[in-house]
Structure formats: structure tokens, C-alpha cells
Design a protein around this nucleic acid. Sequence first.
DNA 1: AAGAGGCCCTGATAGC
DNA 2: TGCTATCAGGGCCTCT
Length: 287
Amino acid sequence: MPELPEVEIVKQSLNKNISSKKVKKVIVRNRNLRLKVPLIFEKYLQNRKIIKVERFSKYLILYLSGGGFCLIHLGMSGTIHIINKKKKSLYTNASFYNSPLLPKNHNHIEIIFENLKLVYNDPRRFGFFQIIKNKTDLIKRFEKFGYEPFDKNFNSKYVLSFFKGKEKNLKKFLIDQSFISGIGNIYASEILYLCKINPNKKAKLLNKNECDLLVINSRKVLLRAIRKGGSSIKDFKNIDGNSGSFQDNFNVYFREGLNCKRDKCKGKIKKKIISNRSTFFCNSCQK
DNA sequence: AAGAGGCCCTGATAGC
DNA sequence: TGCTATCAGGGCCTCT
């Protein structure tokens, strides 16, 4: 599910809800996530304050009082629900579920605060929680990651040198977190459509102009998605109870067999499995 | 070193 | 209706 824009929306929601709040209690109902939830997890969080919530790539970073961090990755199906105890009414935020209520199953972790609690739900259990004890370890955790799209170091010079001699196709690099951080399967297709570049094109064949396009359009697509509140294939809700709507702006994703949206293009949107993931592109204008 | 492919899981949907 | 097969937005691991 969640790529950079969706995780950004979740981050904003969490900051509104839990920053500066103190953790009263933690309940882990199932430790078997993508990574085993460490045994120290509950005790480590208890009585610490959430100073703020940041995001790097598709990771949420909870800054804890005392200098530690809690990383959260939502995997494919992870959702975070905030439940307000005082009002006794459940409401969700940052959820990809189509119900405003908490799902019945797969509520693996609860972080309980004074008047509300955070519930982590994840049917496929590809998400995970990690404790990072200090800033040095945090930096180390992300040292193998590529720049984020908005980083000024992510520019055509970087892209061109990274692609030198690379035989792999472009699509694969866009979802490769060691090249660029935060792009996933949906936005990779959307970005390449805006660039008018075929996802199957070998990376080494890109010229400087095309590298520029890649940089500009990566930023453009992700920024638009954030502004629209993320994409919801299921009914994504943000903190205000609004659904994200970027899926209505998809140019290629989920549009197999439909006409290309470009004015003078007579092409059709094709779906093809590229590097084991479905990839959507126009068979005419993406060269 | 780089690239291809498999695997971790459950649930929704398509096809028979 | 009820079965089975396929696919899903991520990332890590192994093998060649």
C-alpha cells in the first residue's frame, strides 16, 4: 500500500494526535510481523513521551523522550487507527480500510495514551516495528537508502552517474530504495508516464534530458499525491475523516485497456509484469 | 557486482 | 453457491 505520500499523510495525522503525549501502556498481541517485535518493545515505550513523528522514505519515525526512536513500516497492508477513548466513539485515521471502525482481526499492537490509543492493524503482516536506541543507529539504519525525491542531491547528475552501465530496466530502479527512497509500484508507473519513457527501457540508455524529466516528474507526482491526501485503493481516511483522492488522478495505474489521457495520443494503456510487479504504461507515447 | 526470482502472509476478486 | 487460482500498494534473501 503505502508509498511516500500515504506515509506522509499518516505522519501528519500522528503528529496531530500523539505528539507530546506520554505512553501509558503497550500491548503486543502478535509479535510475528515482518520482523519479530522485540521483547523489550513494550517496556521501552512505556512512560516515554512521543516528542514528534517524522518520516523517511516509507518509514515513520517516532521520536521518543530519552533519545530513542520507534520505527514503523506499514508494509503492504498496515494501517494505523487512532481511537478516542473519551468520546467513546471510534474513529480512524490513516487507514486504508473501508470501514470507519476498527477492523475485527489483525490488530497486532496497541499503544495506549491518556485519552486515546493507537492501534496497528496489518492482515498480511509485512509491516514491522523497530526500536532504535540512539541517533547514530538511526543514521546507520538508513545509510544504504538513496535520496528522497525532494532532496536536492537527487538531480540529473546523480541519476546519470547511477545509471551508467546499468542493464536493468527503469521501472525496477524507480522502486529500488537504494537508488531513490519512497517510490513504490503505483507511483513508479505514474512517473514514467509523465516522462513519456517506457518502463522497460534500460537505465543506461537515458540521456541527461530524460534524467532531468525523471527528477522533475518524481517530485511532481509525489507532491500532487500528498496534496490530494494520498491514494486510496481501499477507502483511505486521513485525520479529518477525508479520503485521499489521488487514485482519481491516475493516468495509467489500474487503467489497463483504457485510452491514453494525452490529448493527441491514440494509444492504449497496457499492463505488463516487469520485475515481478504489474506495470502500466501507454503503448504509444512512452518510448 | 548486478540481475533474476522466490518468499514472507491474508483477503478480495475472477473464473469455472 | 462454492470451489480454486490469481493477484495485491514492500522488501529482503539467495542463487547464478
